[in-house]
Lab assay of single mutants.
Amino acid sequence: DVEPGKFYKGVVTRIEKYGAFINLNEQVRGLLRPRDMISLRLENLNVGDEIIVQAIDVRPEKREIDFKYIP
């Protein structure tokens, strides 16, 4: 289970104008929005990159997770 405030290693699987989709595993995916990136820009991410993200909002009923990147 993903818990708000905890850090997780994930893989960038898709990049859109509104953010990057990060997979923690095959069943768990969330969104990293540009506003939640500190010292990292969306255009510097590539599909396949491994990054450490912090879960900031977890909505299991909608199967949605918002992430934050903190270097």
Rank of each mutant, 00 (worst) to 15 (best):
I51G: 00
V11A: 06
M37S: 05
K6V: 09
I22F: 03
R14E: 06
R63C: 10
V47C: 06
K6I: 09
P71A: 10
R63G: 15
L40K: 07
K6C: 10
V58P: 05
K62W: 08
N46I: 11
M37Q: 03
R59N: 08
E50Q: 12
N46E: 12
G10F: 03
R29H: 12
V11R: 13
G19A: 07
D36L: 05
R63Q: 14
P60Y: 11
P71I: 05
S39Q: 15
K6D: 04
V2D: 02
E43T: 11
E64N: 06
E3C: 09
R59Q: 05
L45M: 10
R41P: 05
V11T: 14
Q27P: 04
P60K: 11
I38E: 13
K62G: 07
I51P: 00
E3L: 15
V47T: 07
F21V: 10
M37W: 02
R59H: 08
L24K: 00
R41C: 08
L45D: 00
R35C: 06
L45K: 01
A20W: 02
N44G: 09
L42W: 05
L40Q: 06
R35P: 05
E64G: 07
G30V: 03
R63M: 14
R59P: 03
L42P: 04
V11Y: 13
V53S: 00
A20D: 00
R59S: 06
N23R: 10
Y8I: 02
G30I: 03
K62S: 12
V12L: 03
D66N: 09
T13N: 06
N46Q: 13
I52S: 06
L42Y: 05
P34L: 11
F21R: 04
V28Q: 10
F21K: 03
K17Q: 11
L40A: 07
L24S: 01
D57R: 15
L45P: 01
P34C: 07
I52P: 03
S39N: 14
N46K: 15
D49G: 05
L31T: 04
V28T: 13
L31Y: 05
E26M: 14
P4Y: 09
D66W: 09
R14P: 00
I56F: 11
I52C: 10
K9G: 05
L45F: 04
L31G: 01
P34E: 13
V12Y: 01
R29I: 14
D66L: 12
N23D: 12
E61G: 13
E3V: 14
L31D: 02
E26Q: 15
V12S: 00
D36M: 07
E50K: 14
L42S: 03
G10Y: 01
F7D: 04
L45V: 07
V47G: 02
R59L: 04
L31S: 02
D1V: 15
I56M: 14
G48E: 04
N46W: 14
V53E: 00
R33C: 03
V12T: 01
R14A: 12
E16Q: 10
K17P: 15
K6A: 09
V12G: 00
I56W: 11
F7S: 09
R35T: 10
R59C: 04
I15G: 00
E64Y: 13
R35H: 11
G19Q: 03
F67K: 02
D49P: 02
Q54H: 05
K68Y: 08
A55S: 04
L40H: 05
N23Q: 13
G48Y: 06
I22G: 00
Q54A: 07
D36N: 14
F21T: 08
D1T: 14
F7Y: 13
A55G: 02
P71Q: 08
V2Y: 09
N23F: 09
P34Y: 08
D57C: 09
V2W: 06
N25C: 07
N44P: 03
R35Q: 12
I38K: 11
E43V: 11
E64C: 07
G30M: 03
I38S: 13
D57F: 12
I51Q: 00
R14K: 12
N25R: 08
L24E: 00
R29G: 12
Q54G: 05
Y69E: 07
M37A: 06
N23H: 14
I51F: 04
E50N: 13
I52N: 05
V11D: 02
D36T: 03
D36S: 07
L31E: 02
V47Y: 06
D49C: 07
L45Q: 00
N44K: 10
N25L: 04
F7T: 07
G10H: 02
G5M: 09
N44E: 15
A55H: 01
V47A: 05
V2R: 02
D66F: 12
E26N: 14
R33M: 04
R59A: 04
I56T: 10
G48W: 09
V53A: 03
L32M: 07
D36K: 04
L32A: 01
D66M: 09
G5K: 07
I70C: 08
K9V: 12
K17D: 11
R29E: 10
R41F: 09
G5R: 05
M37R: 01
E61R: 05
I56Q: 07
D36A: 06
V58C: 04
I15P: 00
E50I: 15
D36R: 04
I22Y: 01
G19W: 05
K62A: 11
A20N: 00
I56L: 14
D36W: 08
D36G: 04
V58L: 06
Q27F: 14
L45N: 00
E26P: 15
D57G: 14
Y69Q: 04
K6L: 11
Y69N: 04
N25I: 03
I38N: 11
G10K: 01
V58M: 06
L24R: 01
V2C: 04
E26G: 11
R29A: 12
D57V: 12
G19E: 02
K6T: 08
Y69F: 12
Q27I: 12
L42E: 02
V11K: 13
L32V: 03
D66T: 11
V2P: 08
K9M: 11
N44S: 12
E16R: 10
K9C: 10
Q27H: 15
Y8S: 00
F7L: 09
N25H: 09
V47Q: 06
E16M: 13
I56V: 12
I38Q: 14
G10N: 01
A55Q: 02
R33G: 02
V47S: 04
D49Q: 11
R35A: 12
E16G: 09
G10D: 01
E64P: 04
G30E: 01
E16P: 02
E3G: 07
I38A: 11
K17S: 13
D49R: 05
Y18C: 04
I51M: 08
E16F: 13
P60S: 11
E61N: 13
I65G: 03
E64D: 06
N46Y: 13
N23I: 08
L42R: 03
P4M: 13
Y69L: 05
E61K: 07
V53M: 13
E64H: 11
R59Y: 05
P60A: 13
R14G: 08
N25S: 15
I15D: 00
Q27E: 13
I22E: 01
D1W: 15
N23P: 00
E3S: 12
E61T: 10
E26T: 14
P71C: 09
G19S: 02
R35M: 11
D1Q: 14
D66G: 07
E16K: 10
K17C: 09
F21Y: 15
L31W: 07
P71N: 08
I56Y: 15
A55R: 04
N23Y: 10
R33K: 08
R41V: 11
R35E: 11
R29L: 08
R63S: 13
R29Q: 14
E61Q: 12
V53P: 00
F7P: 06
G19P: 00
